[in-house]
Design a protein around this nucleic acid. Structure first.
Lengths: 189, 189
DNA sequence: ATTGCTTTTTGTCAAATGGCAAATGATTTC
DNA sequence: GAAATCATTTGCCATTTGACAAAAAGCAAT
């Protein structure tokens, strides 16, 4: 819980009562490797914060290939905003790729906090738009780079991820086949 | 100006006084083809709304290649949020690729509106986070598709853009060389 | 140690794409 | 209209990457 509070306070200040209120709505949840936090076709009804472990956001393209869109590791929020905000079905899966410990807020509690705590909306805005910007900044440059450069960028961005997850997820994140990625790794080292 | 008001009201409601106040801060600006709306290395101090024309956001990667990150056409906001919000230097250029007509708010006026108009912050947040989500959703799938599919997606997303701008910009947007794109177009038709 | 299972590496071949340079086409300028 | 300039197409060849298949390595249960 401490991690979450610290994270939040980077984006704005809150008094102890407000922090206590937020904490009181938070539930700690464990998710086993390969289990889903939320699924395509369903409405996202929870906001999560990763305490421990790695999750990935993925979907199936129109060739039926499973594409990993991004990884979310420790101390980051995980929520399909489009689905959560608009109560529409999500188009992606959020899946634990290691055993995970999350802090979770229900939609109801989350909205209640938004109504109750002055300044909380602004903090949430800052958090979510920073996260969105980060997604753009991380994913977008991959389009214009060759496969080796993509992998090197991946290593920079997620230094603590590569050894904890299957190669195939990294490959699909980078838009490269698993075998190509394997060759690339050979050439690098 | 009507376009801007309509656009805003999609995201929340405002009374006539509030609308008048917002309108009073808006300036109509014309930008010639190839001129810059904002530049890398400078702080973005304006929020723009494209009434007519197309702009692109671009940057130089570490090989010195100019990369077009996205196109922004009619009835969309244009602002480097990272730079504008945090008053840090922008890392990209925003350039008109046709003659453009924009509605522009100065940073000062924009912040004043945020302080003055109740509910404006929420509307702005909805607008900006939708735009950010759209950027992710448009750019990200390109990573995992082949060049032809990328081009077809581009045509879907920006149906009114392709005939109004140089091929080279599209190529850099898609992460493909100009000659490859030329051949791809030949094969499609 | 052996077995069965999954993940990763590697090889071969074919297709896609890039780099370069020349040719063609389009647009502007005088 | 001719020249100059810029954008696009095309040809040629080198390189990268994908598809497929087989081998090797890692891991867990026995």
């Amino acid at each position: 819980m401490k991690e979450l509070i610290e994270y939040i306070l980077q984006f704005g200040s809150l008094n102890p009562q407000q922090i206590a209120l937020i904490s009181s709505k938070a539930t700690e949840v464990e998710i086993k490797k390969d289990a889903y936090f939320s699924e395509a076709g369903k409405i996202a009804r929870e906001v999560g914060f990763v305490i421990d472990g790695i999750v990935r956001v993925c979907y199936y393209n129109n060739k039926g290939e499973e594409i990993t869109k991004y990884f979310i590791d420790e101390n980051n929020l995980v929520v399909d905003l489009e689905s959560f905000d608009n109560e529409i079905c999500s188009s992606s899966y959020v899946q634990a790729i290691t055993d995970c410990k999350l802090i979770v807020f229900s939609r109801k509690d989350w909205l209640e906090l938004l109504d109750t705590i002055l300044g909380w909306e602004t903090i949430v805005h800052k958090i979510t738009s920073k996260a969105l910007r980060q997604k753009v900044e991380r994913r977008s440059p991959l389009v214009s780079e060759d496969a080796t450069t993509r992998y090197l960028k991946f290593l920079e961005i997620y230094p603590n991820v590569v050894n904890r997850i299957p190669l195939s997820y990294v490959a699909s994140y980078l838009g490269v086949t698993q075998s190509s990625l394997s060759r690339i790794r050979k050439n690098i080292s």
